[in-house]
């Protein structure tokens, strides 16, 4: 009972009542949780700096009847750069929105925590560029889909289960969001071909790798512009098909990425 401590990443903060804000925090041990920061919108609140989205902080929480509250907060890493650059902000916003959507409340997911933290560090330390942005986005999408069980089928045909080869001799493979992943030549004829996205074998191999890679391993992978582009198209259609609603941050992301 009483107070307890969490160390988490602030996923988002929404205004609540006159001067309060409700934070969604992703904690390493407890998973995603919500807590109210009382009086945070007043200029003299000492919580303000720590409760900015994307920052990693230690929070002391009190137990409330419906919602727990924040009594103290201390910044571990503020990730200020993610809020000071339009491109990084767009990427980070998309990451937290999708994570918030995919993760269930109070369901521990240390892997998701490490993934997001690793990607934020990557974004902060790399030279901001469109290539980095795409690389981080694809790593995140594949990692999150894998963690939340929405992963596309990349080893075998999503319809009949026949293994799909991605060797150097293999031709281009077809990806179907409605089927849930790769789809083999014979199943392709039965399915409607309108939503098919063709992927080079190298792209599929990179996707398999990124699904299970840590941010550090992912960063070491050299992603060709072609692979990044194909992967982006396949994952975009997969996410839009399998998530309940279109991510709100997507339009902003596209504007900043210059699409």
């Amino acid at each position: 009972m009483g107070n307890y401590k969490v160390e988490g990443i602030v996923l988002r903060a929404r205004d609540f009542g006159e001067a309060d804000r409700v934070l969604t925090i992703l904690d390493r041990r407890l998973g995603k949780l919500e807590a109210v920061a009382k009086g945070i919108r007043r200029p003299r609140s000492s919580l303000r700096g720590a409760c900015q989205p994307f920052s990693q902080c230690v929070f002391l929480l009190w137990r409330g009847r419906t919602l727990d509250g924040i009594s103290q907060a201390e910044v571990v890493r503020s990730h200020a750069r993610l809020r000071d650059d339009l491109l990084l902000l767009a990427v980070a916003s998309y990451i937290v929105e999708l994570a918030d959507e995919a993760l269930r409340e109070r369901d521990p997911s240390p892997e998701a925590y490490e993934l997001i933290l690793g990607l934020f560090d990557w974004l902060e330390t790399a030279e901001p560029s469109l290539e980095t942005a795409h690389h981080v986005l694809r790593t995140f999408e594949l990692g999150l889909l894998e963690l939340s069980g929405f992963s596309p089928s990349l080893e075998a045909c999503a319809t009949c289960g026949r293994p799909e080869e991605a060797g150097p001799q293999a031709g281009r493979l077809a990806f179907s969001a409605s089927a849930g992943g790769l789809i083999c030549a014979s199943c392709r004829q039965a399915a409607d071909s309108s939503g098919l996205i063709l992927l080079a074998p190298g792209t599929v191999k990179a996707m398999r790798f990124l699904s299970r890679a840590s941010p550090q391993q992912a960063r070491a992978l050299r992603l060709t512009p072609q692979a990044a582009k194909e992967m982006g198209a396949a994952l975009r259609s997969h996410i839009l098909y399998h998530f309940d609603r279109r991510p709100k941050s997507l339009d902003f992301l596209d504007t900043v990425l210059g699409r």
Binding site: P43, S46, G49, A50, Q52, S55, V75, S78, A80
Partner: peptide
């Protein structure tokens, strides 16, 4: 830092 404020109680980000 806000006028009349106290450095000790300013948050790290603002102070930076």
């Amino acid at each position: 830092v806000p006028v009349g404020g106290d450095l000790e109680y300013a948050d790290e980000v603002t102070l930076a």
